[in-house]
Nucleic acid binder design. Structure first.
Lengths: 256, 256
DNA sequence: CATCTTGGTTAACACCATTCACGGTAAACG
DNA sequence: CGTTTACCGTGAATGGTGTTAACCAAGATG
């Protein structure tokens, strides 16, 4: 029944301006300007009310841009990871995490928009969009690859809090979980735990609620990362991965 | 030279309205309304421009309110802690952390204002205010009390990254450090590390970037807390403190 | 008493999101 | 092909925001 032959001219036009809205919005942010409907419209040579033909309200625009920023940032993370071989997911994860931190430090406004944007627990609309987060999928995937290689221990379903069990079986967070066997979903618990640790340091640093010298030295971030090597079965590779971490962090400092 | 005999009538008046501004502002927030100069002024029976006689701009008002909210929240944490004996700082820390989480979950807007409010690294004005944060002082003090009792290991100054060493010797973060001997300042490193872990979970939960069921179950928070018992020399008391944690968390659930 | 400082006012500017009534134009349909 | 309809933009208006400038009255000060 659903026939979608070819997008009609009008549909193409609509999608084009839709894309332009997102493009201009992100551009606006990276230019250091405020994100506002008026500013976006004005840059497109339109008036603000016209944008309401494309987004329901301001918040929707913000969410849209957040999604797009996340997608673009993930490309960065992937690029950083690809400095290392495909069969070395541990090194790739280290590089990706450093890239994540770098992004959070160089673009604090964008970081806050994507990762500190408050989401009401009842707001199912925005929850769904959050679930699609590209970076979340990428990081879970990296973690899964590490597990395939190193078989780090994870809790059995029965050992999990029943509510958490439901949560890992049918996750409402961004996670590429479809290809993980239900019995192995305890891996997602490890993901949440490690993610919350990484999130803590990086948010602390990005928002500046941290001694500037601690940020400069990256010591807190580094220590947190090292703490998580053992639980991910990477204890034997500590030396090698520390080198990877330090190399990536050094690249940061020289760039700044 | 500096003579301050008694505050003149005008000075008292000024301070009174100043206090009222802060009081009305926090009230506004807890009422669920937006914090705006106009709203504050209107509630005080004044006009917005008058407020500029007291605060330089909107951001300064926000910082002022953030400071005040933090102070009030700390009173909550202390009250929760006082359910346990003064000579049991470990139990008190657990209770305070749960209270911290509870506050972050019930008042996400206030939490974001205080703990996710971005602070530029060059903005020394706001940095100073941050350094005075009441909650930070309280938590460092609790941690120090635990150290006095349990003597958990901490890095020697020489083992610290030189930059971090400077940071713990002359901290730019909220920390009650004056009474800690310089050689013992490695304790502050433990503080930063444990704080960043706690901060990660709580921020994740408060902003909603987390599966709602994980929040409901408090499993992530609980696991993070338990992980930090060992490094704080509380490994032998795991059972007792787990009970404390669960009791406090249970009180949360019943209240909601 | 005259002067100056302080703390408030009103008016105005430049933004912001959002709604509504309208019009033109391009697609869709008979 | 002509007519209708749906879409996409407009301008105008509403009510909100922070912020500045000119002004003014009352209290403090010489």
């Amino acid at each position: 029944m659903p026939v979608l032959p070819q997008p009609t001219r009008r549909e193409r036009q609509r999608e084009a301006t839709y894309d332009e809205i997102v493009r201009v919005s992100t551009q606006l942010l990276t230019d250091g300007a405020e994100l506002s409907l008026r500013a976006v419209a004005s840059r497109m040579g339109m008036t603000a009310p016209a944008l309401y033909r494309y987004v329901a309200n301001y918040q929707e625009l913000v969410d849209l841009v957040a999604f797009e920023l996340d997608k673009a940032a993930t490309q960065d993370f992937m690029a950083a990871a690809e400095s290392y071989l495909e069969d070395d997911p541990a090194a790739r994860l280290c590089a990706a995490c450093v890239a994540f931190r770098r992004w959070a430090l160089t673009r604090p406004r964008e970081f806050a928009l994507v990762f500190a944007n408050p989401i009401g627990s009842e707001d199912s609309e925005r929850r769904e969009l959050l679930t699609l987060s590209t970076s979340g999928h990428y990081f879970t995937d990296l973690l899964y690859q590490i597990w395939e290689l190193y078989q780090f221990p994870y809790p059995a379903l029965d050992d999990l809090d029943p509510i958490v069990r439901d949560a890992v079986l049918d996750p409402l967070i961004p996670a590429k979980a479809d290809h993980i066997e239900p019995e192995d979903r305890g891996i997602l618990w490890i993901y949440m735990r490690s993610w919350s640790a990484l999130y803590g340091v990086v948010t602390l640093e990005s928002t500046g609620h941290c001694d500037p010298r601690v940020i400069e030295s990256a010591a807190l971030f580094r220590a947190t990362m090292l703490d998580w090597l053992e639980p991910l079965g990477l204890g034997a590779e500590t030396e090698r991965l520390t080198a990877v971490l330090d190399a990536e962090l050094a690249r940061d400092r020289s760039q700044r």
